[in-house]
Design a protein around this nucleic acid. Structure first.
Lengths: 349, 349
DNA sequence: ATCGACGTTTGGATCGATGCAAATTATGTA
DNA sequence: TACATAATTTGCATCGATCCAAACGTCGAT
């Protein structure tokens, strides 16, 4: 393969001049420039190889987004919430003209150790250990939805407050009998938690889901309700059968708290299948505001978890440099048509 | 910044040995290895810098996907069809453990010239000129939805056949009065083409959309219908007002041929707003099979444009090496509930 | 004690380009 | 023509690591 040096030799000039022909053409006299360009053409040389340039100035002009551990590229692209996050990162990339690299990291941090990027965003992290590999790269990075301590930048949403708000919204509408769709820690068959069974935070999936449950717990407690008395199901996010199981277990519930839009919509659909009107007989809420939430029938009341904003801020932190930052975004209640006053006949007070 | 050489010096060994400690640890005697590891620790050296390694062996372990020209990262991620395409590329990336890089190329091919990748996939290309910059990189690449001649790999869908099939499907259901929602070549206000107005292929947006129109034209011709007699609107893909304008213009149509799922759904919704039942009074079809098509009410009859498959094949071509390939994928009619027999009262024959 | 075989370690070559200060050449003026 | 000044061009140093063939050392066997 011909390189800059070959061209320079062929044109009878130095490497530097040849380099200038490609990078600062106005610096080279037209005559000489043409000689170099001719030589390049004849040798089939098409401008400096990015590899060499990279080595020299060390800028990749790219940012890595690492999906949650165990996820591949496909898992990331299929997940609508992660898509939203990527969108936020992408906005910043477009602004500064950087590329966005999806770097899955299935085996032994290989991805993080070798990715050709200027910085990282670590999608949902669950343990400090997962952050260590990133520190070793000594590149700027930010973690999402996790508190890694004061020395590492992070962007989080106050998930607990978000869930507190939406649960309170239902309580204010008069609801007292609830059901909860939460997540499993790891893939598996759905698990039912009947009313009256004491349960700990682990009855929700990842740390972030556990915060959601805590938000629900607090709001209920403020209304004098004990979370242990609320029927709950733990299922995989894509296990849309969970809705059926929960409604079987909690036929008297007037409001269902779910932890995602897809589960929320699944509950709406299951309710309709049973002839129960939403929100007339049953109110349903989700979490996060992906486009589907608006399009469901009725449109789903949910919490805007600021996911895209989270991506934006994370990217700004990484590209911006500076000391570690810790941003906590406040979620917003998005009131739509899937929630309404508790039905009078079932109202308990 | 400390580099391998510094560690080697500090440990009193050669670069090569130090390199082996990190890359082939079993080749170095434990005693020496520990000495090197200790030196590395003390100097705060955390393994070989990917930049250097890259220069040596020239593999980036990444593939670039370039969105259609003028699109940024965000435009790509927002477009559900492009998402599907990325998903296909992502599958191959996951299989071989490569990273996926989104490389928008707004200004002067800068992206294509400098992207740090082993190969490219050029998302929808419209002119040979756009391909030249890629050729200059001398990296494997494939173009999508465009025929670049025999020396360049390409993956296309037989869009025309797909549209021919779906139009024929409607004709077989007895439909004779149509309306068409097509696209504009470049963003702007919607343009109406009343029946009877002669029109050329440019009445659809990009080359691929023009093929769609050709497919419709052919199918209609086989039924003795002239495309010039079919009311048509050209609009931006996201201009959901087009449905309203078309139904105003073609109140007597019993079937609407659209060129995307979103426009198809917009027509369904507009029809419902007018109290016309789908498919009872009006049949509607879309193009491509994104998840929304299945979720609409009624689920949209459309054409599976093999978009994800296209991404897979493109990625395989790029990673696979070998001589140029030219794949043409056959689309499939996806019959759902938005199409039905033409209403008797309006049947013309 | 010497030789050979085997397993480690090393030096040198290679990958490709860019920034900067110094050197050279061109230009203009006295 | 000589000299000062400006415009170009050059050489050197730098970026960081890996591969390969050759050199080296160690050990056991004779």
């Amino acid at each position: 393969m011909t390189r800059l040096l070959d061209v320079a030799k062929a044109a009878g000039v130095s490497r530097s001049t040849a380099s200038n022909v490609f990078n600062n053409p106005e610096m080279v006299r037209p005559k000489l420039r043409q000689r170099v360009e001719k030589a390049a053409r004849e040798l089939g040389y098409n401008g400096p190889d990015p590899k060499g340039r990279l080595l020299r100035d060390g800028k990749f002009n790219a940012i890595a987004v690492m999906p949650p551990s165990q996820w591949g590229v496909v898992d990331s692209l299929r997940n609508p919430v992660f898509d939203l996050f990527l969108l936020g990162v992408g906005e910043v990339c477009d602004e500064i003209g950087a590329n966005l690299v999806l770097v899955p990291d299935k085996a032994g941090n290989h991805g993080i150790k070798t990715a050709l990027v200027d910085g990282f965003i670590l999608g949902r992290v669950e343990h400090l250990a997962e952050v260590e590999a990133a520190q070793l790269r000594r590149l700027p990075f930010a973690v999402v939805d996790f508190d890694p301590g004061p020395n590492i930048s992070s962007v989080r949403t106050d998930v607990r407050a978000g869930c507190h708000t939406v649960a309170k919204h239902l309580i204010e509408l008069g609801h007292r009998r609830f059901g909860i769709v939460s997540f499993l820690r790891s893939p598996g068959p759905a698990r039912l938690h009947p009313a009256g069974q004491s349960r700990d935070l682990h009855a929700a999936g990842n740390p972030s889901d556990q915060e959601k449950l805590q938000g629900y717990t607090d709001a209920l407690a403020e209304a004098g309700l004990d979370i242990d008395d609320v029927p709950m199901i733990q299922a995989d996010p894509w296990d849309l059968d969970a809705a059926r199981m929960l409604l079987d277990e909690a036929p008297e519930a007037t409001a269902i708290l779910s932890m995602s839009v897809m589960q929320g919509i699944a509950v709406i659909e299951e309710a309709r299948r049973r002839g129960r009107s939403v929100p007339g007989d049953l109110s349903v809420v989700g979490y996060n505001d992906i486009p589907d939430a608006e399009r469901s029938d009725p449109p789903l009341t949910t919490v805007d978890g600021m996911v895209a904003q989270k991506g934006r801020v994370a990217a700004q932190i990484v590209f911006g440099g500076g000391p570690p930052r810790h941003e906590i975004l406040q979620p917003q209640l998005i009131m739509r048509a899937s929630t309404g006053p508790a039905p009078r006949s079932l109202e308990v007070d």
